[in-house]
Design a protein around this nucleic acid. Structure first.
Lengths: 233, 233
DNA sequence: GACAAAACAGGACAACCGGTCTGTTTTAGA
DNA sequence: TCTAAAACAGACCGGTTGTCCTGTTTTGTC
């Protein structure tokens, strides 16, 4: 989830060192951060070039159009972020519900630490670009699909171990992904990560097959409003 | 939810009829539709003027800046859409869960009929504008807040009638709103409204206090991919 | 070292955007 | 009817955007 921005190597005039992969990585780093923070349309190539320390010619060489750049960000960076944040931890968890829970809590904790909610990269771009271009939509839909499939697969693994017999994998996956997406959306707008924990608690209270009867005393949730400033690029 | 686009009155040169409210409404109609379909940054004032049949002078007279126009769309149209689509039906329902269910189904049915998923107006603008401007963020957060509060209030009403004793109103509201937002997000990206029904089913299967034990045979959901084209303005 | 391709530099440009400005027409009130 | 404000028309402008183009430098290969 954290993008390590690589610094531009200082170069004195007359001496130049070609570094295609490094330059490409630098551009993608900057583009990923800016697309997330300001969105696609609000990010100008001029700003990205300045932030990455890259000339127009170099940028055009690696990414012929702005659309190509965004497509690369989606397919390489956004997909990787979902993989890293969601899919890998989920697969490593003891069960699907446990995995979902740990992801929610990890993200909530991270947001509280950094004091600012930038939102889910996938959802941010999906809302802005899904209807704008078929290629964008297809790329984003594929990531959503892989995400949900990973959750469903984990439920199926649970089922093969004798658990979750009454759970429909696809439906559970849809609910988990939707809840996360929506919670991040509200957390971003309210700049308050507490919604994530609210949703997680509600999800676990109602969704766990044996927890329905022992409610009663509900721990008062804590609300933490995030106030710290942020600045990107 | 449906925006009735008012046609521009034909005017022969030399004769003009002032219609401040009508013109304002026409501009808001077009802006609401375009902001939802293409987003804020991708909607140019020139396009909006042409679509609404309005000159620059007239537009500037009613909305000094583009931001002012967007703020009006948010505060008047988006808030009204949430009220109409969610809050009113919810308050009219027999219970909170019943209300949530009926809203989900109504929206899913509507999407299937129109054959295209444009997404939730609130979420669409929230993602693009929440981080762009504090005024935008505040206006959008207020709508989210009112939405969740209405759901929580309905739970509280249920509780006063002796039901939902184990349900935390705030958490339930957060979960319902988040699930809807996230489901609409995925439905928009996939152009498939089936996710809404998946989420609703998962929500009801797990969240209803007495339904946990009687699962077993789960009805196979139907998936319907939407293919029809759309064109706005 | 020759050479072609890749990598990069940097300017140019046309289209477009949002906002402003001046001027005209309509409308309401006295 | 007179008048002032509101409502509207339409041209205009500075700045920005994404893209393209022509060169120059570096790099791998024979």
């Amino acid at each position: 989830m954290s993008a390590e921005i690589t610094a531009r190597p200082k170069v004195r005039p007359g001496k130049r060192t070609n570094d295609p992969e490094g330059l490409r990585k630098r551009v993608l780093d900057v583009a990923e951060a800016s697309f997330q923070a300001r969105g696609y349309h609000a990010s100008s190539l001029g700003d990205l070039m300045a932030a990455a320390g890259v000339t127009g010619g170099a940028l055009h060489h690696h990414f012929p159009t702005k659309k190509a750049l965004a497509l690369a960000v989606i397919e390489e960076r956004v997909a990787a972020a979902v993989e890293e944040t969601w899919i890998a931890p989920l697969q490593a968890a003891g069960s699907a519900r446990e995995g979902v829970r740990s992801v929610f809590e990890a993200v909530a904790t991270e947001l509280e630490q950094q004091g600012f909610v930038r939102g889910c990269p996938l959802n941010n771009l999906a809302h802005e670009l899904s209807l704008a271009d078929p290629d964008f939509r297809a790329a984003l839909a594929a990531i959503f699909s892989a995400w949900r499939e990973a959750i469903a697969d984990k439920i199926r693994a649970d089922q093969q171990a004798g658990r979750e017999q009454d759970t429909d994998p696809q439906r559970f996956a849809a609910l988990a992904a939707a809840t996360y997406s929506g919670a991040m959306s509200m957390a971003k707008t309210a700049q308050d990560s507490g919604v994530l924990r609210d949703c997680l608690n509600a999800l676990e209270q109602g969704a766990s097959p044996a927890s329905s009867s022992k409610g009663g005393a509900i721990a008062k949730r804590r609300r933490r409003v995030l106030l710290r400033q942020h600045r990107v690029v």
